[in-house]
Amino acid sequence: MDKVELIATSSFGLEAIVAREVKKLGYEDVKVENARVSFTADLSAICRGNLWLRSADRLLIKMGEFEARSFTELFDKTRDLPWADWLPVNANFPVQGKSIRSQLFSVPDCQAIVKKAVVESLKGRYHKQWFEENGPRYTIEVGILKDVATITLDTSGAGLHKRGYRKLSSAAPLKETLAAAMIDLSRWHPDRLLLDPFCGSGTIPIEAAMTALNQAPGLNREFAAENWPVIPKKYWLDARTEANDLLNREMRLKIRGTDINPEALSLARYHARQAGLEKQIHFQQMPVAQVQTKEKFGFLITNPPYGQRLQDLPSVEKLYREMSGIFKKNLSTWSFYIITAHKELETFFGRRADKKRKLYNGRIECHFYQSTAPSRRGGNRKRKLITQTYNRAIPGPI
């Protein structure tokens, strides 16, 4: 097959970032919708997309999309899709589902109908009545929105946020894909110090280092589609070779993560070692009240406590006031990028954000407050040249 239609799914609010990542990979036929970015490409894009997409949740193959108001319609139109072009005779093909504002509201029934339809389709090609399903995994999803069914195959397996470095977890961890998106939105550049004073298990500093070094986020993990016979092994080998060739191992970064919790910092150091970045990030135990630096300009990118429980709100609001005083004193010329579910951050922080963007940390609705340092407003020629150089390092079409 020459071309396939792919869907990079994302959290709400990150679609434009995912679309930009897809275009940087050299794919131009891009369509942005709620929580997904669609594009058409060749089979090698499955390998390259899984390796390189930093802010997407999964990479799916769109098998078909059609109106389905009855189980008969769902069965017939699913059966007519070219399943045998993708699934070998021993394929393991579980079916997942979701239905929103549709007449076919029973998800288990929809899953069963799709499973039966795929089996009937494969019977016609393989002339078998029963399939063992002991081979590669092909997760099928039926998603029905307003009576329109979209049938997809998941090429990623585990979600793309699972880079392979975070083996252990701290309380309320920030998802890697969201951290990468925050780095992208901040327009941080490796010539500036990046500080996360609530670094926890290290996700923001690690994602920043991976981005700056042009390290493909999926380089150290495997994907479901690597075991699919229809995708030549050479495509995966070429994609990994490309990723290794584009990795900038020589750059030295100024990234610092601090936290008051020694156990969280132990996790952060462990995760940095797993990612091969322990020499690029400096972690230090420190309460936010002691944060200071000799760097006149820098980027503070962080995910502070939210105070989701009512009894925690007073202490969180006190913390925000403390942050305001310390940052005004020691970091007055810095840029600030803070994500929180607390809607009054600006009131307690004492600094109006230049931009606010609604994002979701898991299922928690948050706002990403972006406040640019005065020295960065109006542009900077040196920074522009650095940006152009960095963007040229991003992989384009092979």
Rank of each mutant, 00 (worst) to 15 (best):
A243H: 07
K115F: 09
I206Y: 03
E141T: 15
L153K: 11
A209P: 05
I260N: 04
K116I: 02
N220Y: 06
D245N: 14
G200S: 07
N220F: 07
A117F: 05
T150R: 13
A209L: 07
E222V: 03
V119D: 05
Y165F: 13
K254R: 15
P197E: 07
P173D: 08
V142K: 09
L213F: 01
R221W: 02
F223H: 03
P217L: 01
E250W: 12
K162P: 01
L219M: 04
N227L: 08
N214M: 07
E250T: 15
E242K: 15
V230G: 00
W236E: 10
D147I: 12
L153P: 03
V118D: 01
G257S: 10
I113D: 01
G218P: 00
L122K: 05
L153M: 15
R125I: 05
E207K: 05
R137W: 09
P232M: 04
G157E: 09
F198E: 08
D245E: 14
A180G: 08
I255A: 03
Y235N: 14
A208E: 03
F131G: 03
V230R: 02
T150H: 10
Y235F: 15
L246G: 06
L219E: 01
I206N: 00
D191A: 14
E242V: 12
A179K: 07
P232T: 03
R163H: 11
R187N: 15
S170R: 00
D184L: 09
C199L: 06
I144S: 10
G202S: 09
N214T: 10
H127C: 11
L168M: 05
V118E: 04
L185V: 13
Y165E: 01
T241Y: 09
A179M: 11
L219K: 01
L145S: 14
P232N: 08
L237I: 15
T177K: 12
E132C: 08
L193Y: 06
I113R: 06
G143L: 12
R221K: 04
V148E: 14
I206W: 02
R125K: 13
D245V: 14
L122C: 06
T152V: 15
Q215K: 13
K254V: 03
T152R: 11
L160Y: 03
G124M: 08
D238N: 15
G143T: 13
